[in-house]
Computed example of a mutant assay.
Amino acid sequence: MQLSHCPEYTPQHVVFEIRDPEIGLTAFVAVHKARYNVPGFGATRFWQYSSEEEALRDALRLSRLMSYKGAAADLPYTGAKAVIMYTEKAAEHRKEIFERYAKAVESLQGQFITGTDVGVTNEDVQDMSHHTSYVIGKNVDPAFFTARGVFLGIEITLQEVFGSREIRGRHFAVQGAGKTGMALLHMLKDAGADLIITDTNPQRREELRNEFPLAAICEPQDIYEAKVDVFCPCALGGVLNHDTIPLLQCRAVAGSANNQLCDELSAQELNQRNILYAPDYVINLGGLASVVDEFQYHTADADRIEEKLHDMTALLEDIFTRRRDSHMPPSVVADEVMQERLYGSVFTPTYVLN
């Protein structure tokens, strides 16, 4: 497979391929060299893809987002992402997969520093740590700090839309009840929110009925049409697209998922419908901030991370102010701000098309 066939590829990307056919290992590590001579930070995802091309494109897309997220958190590093393709064979050799993968990460000698993402458990991270020193998040809960940042971002978003940060009595549709989604659900519930929740796992939906007896639990396809104040995507990316946006009956979107927007036209469509979008990589930067804090200081400090989240809320307010003045979608404004932070000016990458 040629990188030039991937529209997400830019000259800033360096890609490493990791294979071990005997145990079913196929993985891609993409480092987005927005800054040179510094490590690339990005979690590892263990997920089922329809093809190697889809997996590679996901890694490329997410690594660029991680550069922007690092810039939003004012971190002196660049972005990266790794995806391990989930197959039945890989699942059967799970422990061996993560051991072999960790040894490959170690061989990169610090170019790539990783942790847990979708499909990767804390046990997997512990197994990896026996074979590489470049895995982080072992002694901090990034899901909690991701959710904490999203919660604070929701407050700023409510202020922008309704003139008040008050969550009590507001209605939220939360899509996805994984590690971060669950943490956010508990924060919203404790703040007095009215909740509509869904998850793609039927068993998980039944568990949610017991854990949140006052919440409405709906089928995955029905979450988009929920009449709420805020829609919170907390699962995988690409959920805001030309099929789903016309269904939305919310005033704002603010969630923890990465790459929520399918494309730039989706951002324009939300803007035209007067649905305020809180840029995902801005409000969900808490997880990255927490593991980088652990990396820099050897132990994560909640006060230092909270300071990063406070800075994030000021950044989000600035993005919304620029959005009002320019009438551009918040995601476009955010991208321009991050490009200025990374490159000193708005940067238009040169894509390889052949």
Rank of each mutant, 00 (worst) to 15 (best):
E294D: 09
Y9H: 13
Y77L: 09
R94S: 06
T157W: 02
Y224K: 02
P233N: 03
T44K: 06
Q126N: 11
A314F: 12
K308I: 03
Y351I: 15
C250L: 10
D117M: 05
A193V: 02
F151P: 08
Q48E: 15
H327Y: 09
V239T: 11
F145E: 01
I283L: 13
V135Q: 08
I154N: 01
H13W: 05
Q109V: 11
E123D: 14
V135N: 10
R35A: 04
V140K: 03
E22H: 14
K33P: 08
F112Q: 00
H13M: 12
N354M: 11
F46C: 05
V337R: 02
G286I: 06
S331N: 13
E264N: 11
G176R: 02
E317V: 00
A102F: 00
G192E: 08
L56V: 14
R205P: 07
K138E: 13
F347W: 15
A254K: 00
A90E: 12
I305A: 10
Y343A: 03
G137W: 01
S129M: 06
F46L: 10
Y49A: 07
Q268E: 14
I84M: 04
P233C: 06
G237V: 10
R323G: 12
Q109G: 11
E340W: 02
G344M: 12
S256M: 00
